[in-house]
Structures are given as C-alpha cells and as structure tokens.
Design a protein around this nucleic acid. Structure first.
Lengths: 329, 329
DNA sequence: GCCAGGATTGGAATCGTTTCCAATTGTGCA
DNA sequence: TGCACAATTGGAAACGATTCCAATCCTGGC
C-alpha cells in the first residue's frame, strides 16, 4: 500500500515480513531458512500478492527458462505437431517457449537467431533450411533434419530407413515397378536420404524404379507432365509411388485421380511424415510415420542438458510404416 | 577482449568508443547524438559484436516486446492457423511471441496467466475455455471466442451469422429438413451462438430442424445412436446437417458413410471453421470460413494499442460460406 | 577577445533480483 | 557462567540498461 501504482518487490516483502532481502530470496528459491522466517515471508508474499520479476531474475542469474523454437510455419501439420510436442515437453520441465515462424526466409531465420541471443534464451531448437545460418557459440542450438556439423546436434527421423521401408511396403503389396517423387532442394539435408534408402531397397529387391526430382524453382505441374509422359493405354509405367512427403502425396493423388486412375487399385501411393486428419484422427494416406513425440522430447533433452559432446551429433529416431488407404494394406 | 568469457555490455562499448554510457544508450535507441559520436559508437558496437541485453532493458523500461498467446493446442488446424497468423502479425510489429498450449486444462491456463504476469509480457491473447480465469488488471488481455465482460475485449467470428449462413446454404442446395449437431459445453461462449443463428434462419425459412447437443462428458457414440434413431428405410429423417465444427463434420461423415449414406447425394453436410487440407489446399468439407487472418490481426492490434475503452468489447468479424464437396454447391 | 546561453555529453542513481561476506544469534562444552 | 564456534541472517554490491541532472563544450554577439 506504500507505493500505490506499482507491483510489490522483494524489498516490499522483506519490509512487510520484517526480514532481510536475502532471506526472502532464499524462501523464494527454496533454500532452507528458519521455519519462523519462512512462514513470515510466505505470509507477506501472499498478502502483497508478490510475483517474481523474471527480468530482474534473468538479468542477475543469466538463466531465462525460455527456449526459442524456430520452424518455417505452423500451417504444415508436421510442423505444428512438432511444435505442439516441444511445447508440452518444455512446459513439463518448467520452461517457456518463444515461437518463431520464419516462412522459409533465410533473413528472418538469421534475425530470429540474433533475437534469440538478445533475448538471452537458454537455447534454440531450429528447423531451418538456411544452409549458412550463423549461430553464436554461447547459445546451445539443436537442429532438426539438417546437419550443420559435429558441433551442433541434429535430430532427425531415420530417413534412410524410411525410404527403404516405403519401397518395401509397396513391393510387399504387389508393386512391380516404382517411382520416387520429390520437390527440389539443393540442400543436402537429412530428408534427402529418403531417396538413398529407397534406391538401395529397390536394388536389393531387384525392382525397377524411376525418379522425378523437381529443380528448385520448378512448378508442381512438372510432376503432371511426368505422369502424363508415363501413361500408356490408360495405365502408368509404374504401379507404386513413394512421395517424399504426405503433402506431395496428396497433390499427386489429386493429379492421378484427375487422370482417371484409381488408388490403390491402379497405383499405390506412400507418403512420408505421418500426418493425420485433424491432427489425431486417421492417417491421410499410407505413410512412413515420423516419431514426432520422441523427436521433440530428444530435442528438449539435448537443448536443456547441453551434454558436453557425450551424445552423437546426429540422432536418427526409428520410423514405421502405417496403412492409410492408399495402398492395399 | 578484457573480460574473456562474457558478452560485451554497453559499458564495454562506451569504453571502446571513448564515450559515456548515456551516449551509447542514445545511439542504440535512435536518439540524436553528435555525428562523430554516433560513428564511434556504431563502430565499437560492430567491433565488439555487442547485443542489447533485453533482460536489463526489460527490467529498466518495463517493456518486453513480448506477447503471450494461449491456445488449447496446436494439433487442431484452426488453432495452429490462428497462432501462425498471430505470430506473423506480431513479428511484423517487432514483437515476440511466447506460446502456451494449455490442453484445455483450467489449472494450466491459470498458471500460464501467472507466468505471463511474472514474465511481465506486454499482453496476453488467449483462447480459453476456463470460465473463471483470474486475470490481473495490469496485463492487457484479449480473448478469442469467449466473452468475459466489458473490461476484456473479445474477438470472434460472426457466429450467429455463420449459423444462419449454414442453414441457408443447406436449404439453397435443396435440403427440406435440417439437423444441428454440437458437442457439449456448459460454457456460454461465442461459438454457442452458431446454434441461435441456425435456429433463427430455419424458422425464418420455415424449414423443420432438430438438434442433438451432447452433454459435457458424453461420448461421440451418442451421435451415432442419434443418427441410427433417425434412420428409416435406409434414409435419414433429415437431408442436411450443420456440424458445429469441421472436425465434428468429419467424424459425422465417417459415421454416415458407414451407415451406407452418400454425401452429398443422400445427405449434405456443412461444418464451421474453414479448415483446409494441409493448411492451404482445398477445404475439407463445405463449411463456414472463419476469417482467421483478420481475427489474428485484430487481436494483435487490440493487445498492442490498448486503446482505452474506445473499441467495443465484442468484435464480430464476417464469415463466408465455402463449398467443399459435401454439399451440392 | 570575452562572456553568456544553448546544446551535448558525462556519469550517477535506479530498476528488482542474486550472491557473498560480515555480523549476529544461538548452542554446547568446559 | 563464560567462551568459542557453527549456523543463520542482514545488508551491500553487482547484473546491464535507462534516465536525469550537472558539467562541459561551442557558438554567437557585443
């Protein structure tokens, strides 16, 4: 009641309780203190409705209990699910999350890193497509799906294994000839390994395959031309398609249906990600499911524990195949 | 280079540039200062790679340039789209976003409000289903879809108009008898008005309707029983259904198809929200589209400008009907 | 050439915590 | 009863920025 228009501070609490500043600090931080003192302080805190000013705390202690999370957007179901899981994981550990949607813009990504440093967050988890992202040494950074080098841990799903799994699933369902479709990316990031796994599996099974990989700026219609080119007598050259993401799978399926093809009768399609309708209903297509929860959990573990070089710098988490109606099983 | 293991401070910059602390502060904050001084300071900043410590800044200035955003989760496409838009809007204005996913838990929601106060964020935008959320006076709060009272601005889509629009769309497409389906909620929040708008429109058009509103804990299967009860000779009593959300619409359509009904031939379905496949492909069903971008923009405007009582406390933004394949047009 | 007055800069005080050291209290033993 | 030592508390300094007032510098006029 002394200073009307201002939140109570530790000093007010100390005065109210008739104890010293340091004692109040100890009570707040759970450091043992005389029983009677603790009670007086707790009472005063309640009476004044005191709240810690975390800016003062952050300034003094250099801990913010905030992690910055950087993703391209929240529109894509995979990203939003991932962020949702990371948020939950952080909350459980008493951390806050500063969210940064970068819209794939390298400049924005860089500016968020700078912002994160300014904000003095305790760490950054980032899913970036910016190959030359400059990161300061003193902010722990965890990368998802993109390997920057041994000094920055990278968490990813087992992209190579997933690619193989997709090929195997298609063949198991009777496909005789496969196709791999991917949108363009000059980046050598982890998801590119889906192709390698796919190719390797095809060769091991001695199954013919072809690929169509769009160049960076090429429009989606290039895929339609590709499909048209491989149509003969109302049938495709291949009877199984692995699309690099569920999103692409859906676009492709739209085109296939327009061309009069039935899925999965005429051609079977497998995607990658494990997107579900409305986040948790059924799968939107047969797909390779990324272990989003585990990936999120792993990122949070890594960013908080900053385990010194103990962990490998590339962590691949296992994927699984899930039936979603666009294959025979 | 003086203090090796620690980030440079304004003091270091001042020493490096040979000027006073206050001068550095002015340069950083764009307050006019002698040309030669400004250059010296800017050079020193670059040389030392100085970054503002926003915790010190926040402590002193009581501004954080951070807004807390509270939603139940990011799994639901509507929420994630909303958060995505809010994030973009905040970033454009130089604000950061602290994200809080509450999982519908009143306790968590409350704890986030407290956290937000501690963090001394500049404001909160919240989509809460907690009827008795306690909010402090000194943190500007904007509510989405839930009206707390005249002191807290509420942003919502035109739920009443949307309900009417849904009924009109179904009738326009030839429906003779309608049904309204909603999951339970004891809360009197804005989306409840969808029902009122629907009823009013039905009565104006003299079209018969029925409703099935689940009680709070009732399982989804209650809807299936309802549908079964209204089946006669392989046909439903009604030929148009308005579901209170797109998510419910999809669940209902699943049930309808299992019962052997064709959509939209046997029964037409309209949802509410305007969810799109993968965030920006086609609509997942015929639906009433919420103006998410505008809602986000409005929230951000309100929370930042804290316009003193000038704005109405309930802001309804216009909705529109969108065809999504589950009606005739 | 000198002084008054305006315009800038310099530097101290401050924000609300944490932390550390000195001061005080209390306990136990002789 | 008195003293020494352990255990706590009290209070000051520090974190890094902002802000305000006093001190300094310049300019222009006489």
């Amino acid at each position: 009641m002394n200073k009307p228009n201002s939140a109570p501070t530790m000093k007010d609490v100390a005065r109210e309780a008739g104890v010293a500043l340091g004692t109040v600090s100890k009570v707040i931080n759970g450091i043992p203190v005389g029983e009677s003192y603790r009670l007086k302080v707790e009472e005063a805190i309640k009476k004044l409705n005191y709240r810690v000013n975390s800016y003062a705390k952050g300034l003094k202690s250099n801990r913010t209990f905030t992690i910055a999370v950087m993703v391209p957007n929240l529109i894509s179901p995979f990203f939003s699910k991932l962020v949702n899981c990371i948020n939950k994981s952080l909350a459980q550990r008493g951390y806050r999350m500063l969210l940064c949607a970068t819209d794939y813009d390298p400049e924005q990504e860089q500016s968020y890193v700078i912002m994160a440093e300014q904000q003095k967050v305790d760490g950054i988890i980032c899913l970036s497509y910016n190959p030359n992202l400059q990161v300061s040494e003193d902010v722990p950074l965890i990368s998802i799906d993109r390997y920057f080098g041994a000094h920055i841990p990278c968490v990813a799903s087992d992209n190579y294994g997933g690619g193989a799994l997709a090929a195997q699933a298609l063949v198991r369902n009777g496909c005789k000839s496969l196709a791999f479709l991917r949108v363009g990316s000059k980046l050598t990031n982890e998801p590119n390994k889906r192709r390698d796994g796919f190719i390797n599996a095809c060769e091991n099974m001695a199954v013919p395959y072809m690929m169509k990989i769009l160049d960076d700026g090429q429009p989606y219609s290039a895929f339609e031309e590709f499909l048209q080119a491989h149509m003969q007598d109302g049938k495709l050259d291949f009877d199984g398609i692995f699309c690099v993401t569920d999103l692409l799978a859906h676009q492709i399926m739209g085109s296939l249906r327009q061309m009069g093809l039935r899925i999965p009768e005429d051609v079977q399609v497998v995607g990658y990600d494990g997107i579900r309708h409305f986040g948790d209903l059924d799968y939107t297509c047969s797909t390779i499911v990324q272990p989003v929860e585990e990936m999120a959990e792993t990122c949070v573990d890594l960013v908080l524990e900053k385990n010194e070089g103990k962990t490998p710098s590339l962590i691949c988490l296992p994927v699984r195949y899930a039936y979603g109606g666009t294959t025979r099983s």
